[in-house]
Design a protein around this nucleic acid. Sequence first.
DNA 1: AATGAATGAGAGTTCATTCAT
DNA 2: TATGAATGAACTCTCATTCAT
Lengths: 197, 197, 197, 197
Amino acid sequence: MPGTDSARYQQQRREAIKSAAAVFADKGFHGASTKDIAAHLGIKQGSLYYYFKSKEEALGEVCHFGIHDYVERMNNIAASEQPFEAKLMATVTSHLSSYRERNEALKVYNDERLYLPEEKRKSLKQMGSSYRQHLEGIFEEGVRSGAIRESVDCHFAAQAVIGICNAWGDLIVRDPDLDVFDVIQKCTELLLHGFSK
Amino acid sequence: MPGTDSARYQQQRREAIKSAAAVFADKGFHGASTKDIAAHLGIKQGSLYYYFKSKEEALGEVCHFGIHDYVERMNNIAASEQPFEAKLMATVTSHLSSYRERNEALKVYNDERLYLPEEKRKSLKQMGSSYRQHLEGIFEEGVRSGAIRESVDCHFAAQAVIGICNAWGDLIVRDPDLDVFDVIQKCTELLLHGFSK
Amino acid sequence: MPGTDSARYQQQRREAIKSAAAVFADKGFHGASTKDIAAHLGIKQGSLYYYFKSKEEALGEVCHFGIHDYVERMNNIAASEQPFEAKLMATVTSHLSSYRERNEALKVYNDERLYLPEEKRKSLKQMGSSYRQHLEGIFEEGVRSGAIRESVDCHFAAQAVIGICNAWGDLIVRDPDLDVFDVIQKCTELLLHGFSK
Amino acid sequence: MPGTDSARYQQQRREAIKSAAAVFADKGFHGASTKDIAAHLGIKQGSLYYYFKSKEEALGEVCHFGIHDYVERMNNIAASEQPFEAKLMATVTSHLSSYRERNEALKVYNDERLYLPEEKRKSLKQMGSSYRQHLEGIFEEGVRSGAIRESVDCHFAAQAVIGICNAWGDLIVRDPDLDVFDVIQKCTELLLHGFSK
DNA sequence: AATGAATGAGAGTTCATTCAT
DNA sequence: TATGAATGAACTCTCATTCAT
């Protein structure tokens, strides 16, 4: 396999990942065929293997693509010096706008990662966990700073934020006309009120 | 198909539906094989077809099983004469405890219903929609009675409740040691605070 | 297996053979299922095995049923002391009316006998061969008696009679409104003219 | 499905159709397995589906292949300006030699077309009907020109010709040593004598 | 005399994958 | 860089058959 690192190749490969993301999001990992993915990309089935060693690898790349920036941004948010309210809003904004920008890849990570081989799944899970832990940390800060009630269970809170964002994320992916900014505001409002004193 | 009415047959069929629910929840519709389902039930693959005309029919029955009581209970809640707070709590309780009682069927409805044939999917979707509409109605009542802010978008609120419950439902299904009652309380608290004045 | 020779049993068995004949004629041996046959008879699939050891045995019985009287009658015709013309007419009459009386069994013998096990097929083939040989004999007599041209190839002639009768037999089975007597006359006329001086 | 137009593909596909014809003729549609067909072609079972969408499509192609030229030739015969006797001889010749040239496909059309889906069956039936109608037309001409008796039922006559040819066609397919030309002559002689004044 | 329930073998079909070109 | 062709394993589903009741 020649020059797999040429810029052109990398570019095409990213297109392939996006096609895979779109098809996996639409039909699920097992419901989608490599033929579907190839067709979405405008090439023939066998040619996909120029970009992926296997269907599973494609899934891995999609999941990675879906979650990488998403986690990265959380790192930044957590490390920043903003008050609780701003961090929460930033989190929600980052999470929900991911569903628009990265298209379907985050959804695929959520729904199909269990079909990944053990090892890959673990490494991705770590990223997901770090996300959640950062978010828990933000809530703990919020408790300490008095922004939210002391009684708040920070683990619960983090899962709730993730859950609500994923649920609305699904709707965002399905309905391209949805006003994401409006959803962001309402989610943030609900959560701020919900946990504040 | 055999004497569809014999009690023994109906009993066994229900067992088959539960097995299908468990396996579909674990591996997804396409990831699960009829062999898996049969094995879970303790019979041989071919014998499954004594209870289902097809794998698709099995999925349909699982989804129906998963959503039927859940919707039924919402009807009762919506029709009852309780204040907003009680209805919201009842909703959360019903939703989350469904994940324990009906085991995995509700999860299957959420995740796999898109693989159902058009017609069946529509009839189930109607049930799901009625659920959401009832819930929206409850929020509208809450606004009118002054229990929650006037500015609350009832459609958003209903989706948020469903989303948060489904997210925690997934965790409940995956972790049998989770204290469901605790989750119910925390969800309700979050939502009540989140939307109240 | 009890009293398999009681009159009632034999009566029911004959009904089963007729049902099998009807279904085999309609769908072919492999296209027909034992369930189809049982349904046609008004019993359940498993119960068929009270009358037949196997589907193959059912086919054997149908074929036998279809060809037995047919051959018997040819024996009588061949042994009788009639002129050639009368024998030919009797043959055509016997053959074509078989398709009405014995219903579909003769058609099944023609079309599906190749699915019989070697041994059974041979024994039936012998009956068929004897039929053809008798018919050839009739033609040879006809040549000798001067009723038909000396140049007639008696083997060819016999096959032609059988072929034309089977072809019209198919049409007779398919169309219950066909005037069999009319067809008999026309076939006989064609053949008499065709082979006469 | 691949570039349906490459010459190589079309060539191989025709081979596949011939293999299917041979196997269907030998064992019947339901009695033949796709494995049998693939083996006859020298490829593995799954690879057949590179050439056919389904076993049913294969049957359709075989039937089409079997009947197409056969009908075409009848069109030419009917349109030609020959006397009745020549047209009848041409018909018999065309019909019987089809069984040699096209191998088993015409037999398959005769015996297995009922397993085709409604639509395909209808379009093929139309071809068959046009054949019979042309043949009836030839007989009507024969009556008018005085070549055959006025009393001849032309519909009957056409069916008789077809029936006798198919019957001998079966024998021709089964016995490769048969002298087709001899059969043609004898059939024609029988029919000419049979219907002439 | 008949049935409900189950079975196991085999069918048609799909599909991820390979590889020469 | 991509394709046509083929493969083999897995899958869903059918069906003749058995057998306790």
